[in-house]
C-alpha cells in the first residue's frame, strides 16, 4: 500500500457543527452528563485510513510515544485544564525523564493508577529495557502528552497533531506509538 495522509476536509464542517453543539452540550457537560452530551456530538467521519509502511526492523527503529493520559512534569509545566471542553494543549516529555518526576492531570481517568505506576500509560521503563536488550533500536529524544478528553477536535487536528508529527520527523523517529486511555 502506498503512503496516505490523514483527511483534512472534515475540519471546516466540524467547526460549524461544533458551534451548534457546544451551547446545547455545555449545561450537560457542566453536570457531567457526558452520555447525553456526546449523543449529539459531531464526531468526524473519515473515508480513508492514513498509512505509512513500516520499512525497518524493530531492532533498527527509533520510537516515540504519544500518550493521551495528560502526563506532565509538575516542576516544569502546568497541569492540563479540567474544563467542560477539556484541553487541547501539548506537553513535551524529555526522553531521559525520570518517571517519578511525572504526574497526570486527567479527571476522566482514574489518575491514581498512573500515579501508582506511570508505565501503565507511558511505558518508558520497559521501552528503555528493550533498547538496552537490542530488541528496539532507540527512543525519541522527546515524547508527547495530550489530554484524551478534548472536545475541540479541529484544533487538535490543525495545531497539536501537526506539531507532534513535525517534531517526531525532526527527531528521526521511525515509529510513533499512540497510547489512548
Amino acid at each position: 500500500m502506498p503512503p496516505m495522509k490523514a483527511e483534512q476536509d472534515w475540519i471546516e464542517d466540524f467547526r460549524v457543527a461544533y458551534g451548534h453543539w457546544l451551547p446545547e452540550a455545555l449545561p450537560l457537560l457542566e453536570r457531567a452528563e457526558y452520555q447525553a452530551a456526546f449523543r449529539f456530538y459531531p464526531f468526524p467521519e473519515f473515508d480513508t485510513t492514513p498509512w505509512t509502511p513500516v520499512t525497518k526492523p524493530l531492532a533498527a527503529s527509533r520510537l516515540g510515544v504519544v500518550t493521551t493520559a495528560s502526563v506532565y512534569r509538575p516542576a516544569v509545566d502546568p497541569p492540563f485544564v479540567q474544563g467542560p471542553e477539556g484541553d487541547v494543549s501539548l506537553r513535551r516529555i524529555p526522553g531521559d525523564v525520570t518517571l517519578a518526576d511525572l504526574d497526570v492531570s486527567h479527571s476522566h481517568i482514574p489518575e491514581h493508577v498512573a500515579r501508582q505506576d506511570m508505565n501503565t500509560v507511558l511505558p518508558l521503563d520497559h521501552l528503555r529495557a528493550l533498547v538496552a536488550a537490542g530488541v528496539l533500536g532507540g527512543l525519541a529524544g522527546t515524547h508527547f502528552s495530550v489530554m484524551g478528553y478534548a472536545t475541540r477536535a479541529a484544533d487538535l487536528a490543525e495545531t497539536v497533531a501537526p506539531e507532534i508529527a513535525e517534531a517526531l520527523v525532526q527527531d528521526r523517529v521511525d515509529l510513533a506509538l499512540l497510547v489512548p486511555v
Partner: peptide, 15 residues
C-alpha cells in the same frame, strides 16, 4: 480505562 499496559506493578505483563 487508563491502564492500557496492564495492572500497576505487574511489570512482566506490561512488558
Amino acid at each position: 480505562r487508563g491502564s492500557m499496559f496492564g495492572e500497576p506493578g505487574n511489570r512482566d505483563k506490561q512488558r
